[in-house]
Amino acid sequence: MTTNASASDPVAEPWLVAGLGNPGPQYAANRHNVGFMVADLLASRMSGSFKTHRARAQVLEGRLGPPGPLGRRVILAKPMSFMNVSGGPVTALRDFYKLPVERIVAVHDELDIDYGTLRLKRGGGDNGHNGLRSITKSLGPDYHRVRFGVGRPPGRMGVADYVLRDFSPAERKELDYFVDRAADAVESLILDGLERAQSTYNS
């Protein structure tokens, strides 16, 4: 397996993976909270549980990937601010762990991609996503993104109403599969590097 190694020690240098969403049970199944869903699945793969961090986030420190030297240290986070101020907790975690921006991954919903489709990239605009706008304002644009397609709202439904609604019954039939695939994409990005992950998941 190829690795995204640096000249220092790629195992010792952690990644910050921030799943974006809104805190509170009333938002848990919303389309806007798919980043939290992916983070929860990654936490189960890391065999750990989230703990409250002073950066206004739920955080889990552990490893992703195979055991031994090919595994990667990961700080998995769910910001406990609301989506449109996600930049505060993400920046506080960046500062606390002293991470370069290229080691930060945001997992988020994306309106302009069909439901369940993934797109991985580094940098770029926020495309109207308030969580990304907040992070970019604090960090600049050069972090990685795992974009989970939720599709456009039907008819004249407003964007806010659409993303703050639960996935439909038809969507929920495949949601677990798509969340699992998004978690795989995060692992591939960290273990294999962006280009190889894109070649596999940007389909």
Score class of each variant (00 low, 15 high):
141 P>V: 01
44 S>W: 01
132 L>K: 08
165 R>W: 08
63 R>Y: 00
138 S>K: 15
198 Q>C: 11
79 P>N: 05
103 R>M: 03
167 F>S: 12
85 V>D: 15
32 H>D: 09
13 E>Y: 02
49 S>N: 12
15 W>R: 07
88 G>R: 09
122 R>C: 07
177 Y>G: 12
129 H>N: 10
99 L>G: 12
6 S>T: 14
63 R>C: 01
194 L>R: 12
165 R>E: 13
2 T>L: 06
129 H>D: 02
61 E>G: 09
150 V>T: 10
160 A>L: 12
89 P>Y: 00
193 G>A: 12
179 V>P: 01
41 L>R: 15
10 P>N: 06
71 G>K: 09
32 H>S: 02
70 L>F: 00
73 R>M: 01
41 L>V: 14
25 P>G: 15
98 K>C: 04
131 G>T: 09
31 R>V: 06
106 A>R: 02
109 D>C: 04
28 A>R: 10
4 N>H: 02
79 P>S: 00
140 G>S: 07
184 D>G: 14
102 E>I: 04
165 R>D: 14
154 P>K: 14
122 R>W: 06
174 E>S: 15
82 F>D: 04
85 V>H: 02
69 P>C: 05
191 L>H: 01
183 A>Y: 04
201 Y>W: 14
125 G>T: 13
36 F>E: 03
80 M>D: 09
73 R>A: 13
110 E>V: 06
23 P>K: 03
82 F>M: 10
108 H>E: 11
165 R>S: 15
81 S>T: 15
62 G>D: 09
61 E>L: 00
86 S>T: 15
169 P>C: 12
24 G>H: 02
49 S>F: 06
190 I>V: 11
201 Y>H: 13
2 T>C: 03
90 V>K: 00
179 V>K: 11
109 D>G: 05
66 P>C: 11
132 L>Q: 02
145 R>T: 09
21 G>V: 03
51 K>M: 10
146 V>N: 08
112 D>N: 15
163 V>N: 02
172 R>A: 14
15 W>S: 01
178 F>T: 04
148 F>Q: 08
84 N>V: 04
122 R>T: 15
118 L>P: 05
8 S>I: 06
52 T>I: 07
185 A>D: 08
77 A>V: 04
83 M>T: 12
37 M>G: 04
144 H>G: 15
81 S>I: 06
162 Y>G: 10
130 N>V: 03
199 S>K: 14
184 D>K: 12
121 K>F: 01
193 G>W: 02
129 H>W: 08
67 P>E: 08
80 M>E: 15
117 T>A: 13
23 P>M: 09
138 S>I: 04
115 Y>F: 15
192 D>K: 13
195 E>Q: 09
104 I>L: 14
1 M>R: 12
103 R>E: 08
23 P>Y: 07
115 Y>M: 03
70 L>T: 11
60 L>V: 05
94 R>N: 13
172 R>I: 09
18 A>N: 11
3 T>F: 10
145 R>Y: 03
96 F>W: 09
110 E>C: 05
99 L>V: 13
164 L>W: 07
148 F>C: 12
109 D>P: 11
